[in-house]
Amino acid sequence: MQTVNIHEAKTHLSRLIDKAAKGEPFIIAKSGKPMVKVVAINAPATSETRRVGFLDGHFSIPDDFDDMGREDIEELFGGKE
C-alpha cells in the first residue's frame, strides 16, 4: 500500500483519490508517521468481506453428518482393536 506525505497528498490529491476509488487505498503520513488510510467508501474492510451463502442450493448436508464414519474413525484411533 502506498504511503504519501501530507505535502504530496495535497499536491496530487485528485490523482490519489482516483486511485483509491479504483481499489488502491493509500496512507497519508505526517513526518513519516502514518496518520490516515484513504479507501473507497464502497470498498469493504478486509474483516467485513463475507462469503456466507455463496453455495446456497448447490448441495445439502445429511442429517447424520456428525455421525458419518464414526465406527471407522473410532477403530482407527483405538476404539476397537
Rank of each mutant, 00 (worst) to 15 (best):
D67Q: 04
I17P: 00
G69S: 15
L55D: 14
I27R: 09
T49K: 14
R15A: 11
G32A: 04
L16F: 15
E74P: 02
S60C: 07
K33R: 08
E24F: 08
G79H: 08
V39D: 13
I17G: 00
M1G: 14
L13Y: 08
A40S: 15
T11I: 02
K30T: 04
G78T: 10
E8I: 06
R51I: 06
M68N: 15
K30S: 05
A20V: 12
A21L: 10
D72S: 10
D63K: 09
L55G: 04
E71L: 01
K33I: 08
R70F: 06
D64P: 00
L13S: 13
F77Y: 15
M35N: 08
H58Y: 09
L76W: 05
P34G: 04
A21V: 01
N42T: 10
F59K: 05
V39L: 09
K30N: 06
S60N: 11
R15Y: 02
T46P: 11
L16N: 08
I17H: 01
A20G: 06
D18G: 10
E48I: 03
A21Y: 08
D72F: 04
N5F: 02
V38G: 02
P25H: 06
K19A: 11
K33P: 00
D72A: 12
P44E: 06
I41R: 08
F59Y: 14
K37N: 07
D56A: 15
V36W: 09
T46R: 09
G79R: 11
I17M: 13
E24A: 07
R15Q: 10
G23S: 13
E24M: 06
K37R: 15
G69Q: 14
L55S: 09
H12E: 11
A29N: 00
A21T: 03
E74I: 05
G79W: 07
N5M: 00
E81W: 03
I41N: 05
E75A: 15
K37P: 02
K10H: 11
P44Q: 09
E75G: 09
D56M: 13
S60K: 11
G32K: 03
E71G: 02
E81F: 04
V38S: 01
E8H: 09
A21N: 10
S14T: 14
M68E: 15
G57Q: 14
A21M: 05
P25Y: 07
D18C: 07
A43L: 11
E74F: 11
G53M: 01
L55H: 12
I28V: 15
I6R: 12
I73H: 05
